[in-house]
Amino acid sequence: MIIDCSNTLPEFQFQGSDEINPKNENYKKLFGPRWARLAGWTNDEFFNRIKTEPIDNVMKDVYTKLEADFSMDKFLKMLDDSNIVYHAIHNMDYGRDGSEAPADHDYVAQILQEYPNRFIGFAGFNPHKGTESLKVVRKALTEQGYKAVVIPPYEHGLKADDRKYYPLYALCDELEIPIWIHSSINYYKETSVFLDHPSNLEAPLMDFKNLKIIAGHGGWPWIPDMIAMLLKYENLYVDTSAFRPRYVAEPNSGWDMFMYYSNSLIQNKILFGSDWLTIGLPINEFITEVEEWPLKESIREKFYWKNANKVFKLGLENKQK
């Protein structure tokens, strides 16, 4: 069985392209063809259309097809067929100012209630919205069934060690709740690529002794730094989500050290995370590629579910007895 700790719902992923900051149209061009493939288009079909049409118009057609193909019933069957026993819902709170209310957490709470023991809810925090956002997160964790928190520093324009995040870290430390933090490359042209460097996780890990952090997306392209952090800090974990598995296992792709130490020193720190909806690769194909990784079988089991089961306190070990 598998626990996917980095993902969302199809309806969140395949929303209108107007939701993406127009300053970052390169995101549409990066992920658009991936989602088009998931909708059954070829690369040629997608790129030929954006040569003559606005990309927003093309993406609307892609989203329409995806909405039909990824209804909740069909989505759940995909997960069942791939033995995904828990699937993350990252309920992000985006934005670089506090002008809007905190992101709604009630809708995902309804999903968690309707499909018990199926999803892991990650509450989204926005430091620019301060106490109001913190109240929403606390309610999500203590009343609405959420089991974790998620923050994307690049979306907030802040490093993970910024003191504006510290009230959240204190809350997670108090409640013993893990927090997933984007710790890899971002593609926003107006944002430093180093804003999400794994080293920015060090101060929170030092200041909050019980804080559990999941470094999302593996720390690439700073894998040696990520490994050093994992070796040093007991409560730091990592997933390799948002990267196609066959490239993670490809020599000279930058992941070599990660693959080497996964079979030894960081075997208890690695978590399965896919973001298969984002990269446009069906989950069954994603897992097929992961199966090619040179992991020992005992460690593969840790990677697939045992480590995450411990981090999120899911109690799945009882089902194995």
Rank of each mutant, 00 (worst) to 15 (best):
Glu291Arg: 12
Pro198Gly: 04
His128Gln: 11
Pro251Ile: 10
Thr64Phe: 07
Ile283Gln: 05
Lys232Asp: 09
Leu175Arg: 01
Gly273His: 03
Asp69Ile: 09
Pro251Phe: 08
Ile287His: 05
Phe75Trp: 13
Pro294Lys: 10
Ser17Val: 11
Leu236Lys: 03
Gly254Pro: 04
Phe272Arg: 07
Gln144Asn: 15
Trp293Leu: 11
Leu38Val: 05
Asp196Thr: 13
Trp222Val: 01
Asn24Met: 04
Phe119Gln: 07
Glu114His: 13
Asp61Gln: 14
Phe125Glu: 09
Lys159Leu: 01
Ala36Met: 05
His197Val: 05
Ser274Asp: 06
Phe303Ile: 03
Phe75Asn: 02
Ile84Gly: 02
Lys302Pro: 01
Asp80Gly: 06
Gln15Ser: 15
Pro167Gly: 05
Arg118Val: 05
Asp275Glu: 15
Leu316Trp: 02
Tyr166Gly: 06
Lys139Trp: 10
Leu277Ala: 03
Lys159Asn: 13
Ile50Pro: 03
Tyr304Ala: 11
Glu301Ile: 13
Thr240Asn: 13
Asp73Cys: 00
Gly16Ile: 01
Asp162Val: 04
Trp180Cys: 15
Val238Asn: 04
Gly32Cys: 04
Trp255Pro: 06
Val137Tyr: 07
Leu236Glu: 07
Phe243Ile: 11
Asn210Cys: 06
Ile266Met: 04
Asp196Ile: 00
Asn126His: 09
Trp305His: 05
Ser82Asp: 08
Asn24Lys: 09
Trp220Ala: 08
Val136Asp: 08
Ile179Cys: 09
Asn48Cys: 06
Tyr165Leu: 07
Tyr304Trp: 15
His182Asn: 14
His197Trp: 04
Glu301Pro: 05
Val311Pro: 04
Thr42Met: 11
Tyr260Met: 12
Leu205Ala: 06
Ile223Asp: 00
Asp173Leu: 01
Gln110Asn: 14
Lys232Leu: 14
Glu292Asp: 11
Ile213Trp: 03
Ile279Phe: 03
Leu205Arg: 08
Val136Ala: 14
Tyr188Met: 15
Ser192Met: 09
Leu76Val: 12
Leu79Gln: 12
Tyr247Gln: 09
Glu19His: 13
Lys209Glu: 12
Asp104Pro: 06
Val137Phe: 10
Asp4Thr: 04
Arg138Ile: 03
Ala101Arg: 12
Phe125Ile: 12
Trp41Val: 11
Gln113Arg: 14
Met1Ile: 10
Ser17Tyr: 04
Lys28Val: 15
Tyr233Leu: 10
Pro10Lys: 05
Phe208Pro: 01
Leu230Tyr: 02
Gly218Asn: 02
Leu168Tyr: 05
Lys164Leu: 14
Pro33Leu: 09
Ala88Ile: 06
Ser253Ala: 15
Tyr237Thr: 04
Lys232Arg: 13
Val62Asn: 06
Gly157Trp: 02
Ser264Asp: 15
Pro294Gln: 10
Cys172Glu: 06
Gln144Val: 07
Met78His: 15
Ser82Arg: 00
Leu236Arg: 03
Ser264Cys: 10
Asp97Val: 07
Arg244Met: 12
Asn200Asp: 04
Pro102Met: 01
Arg244Leu: 11
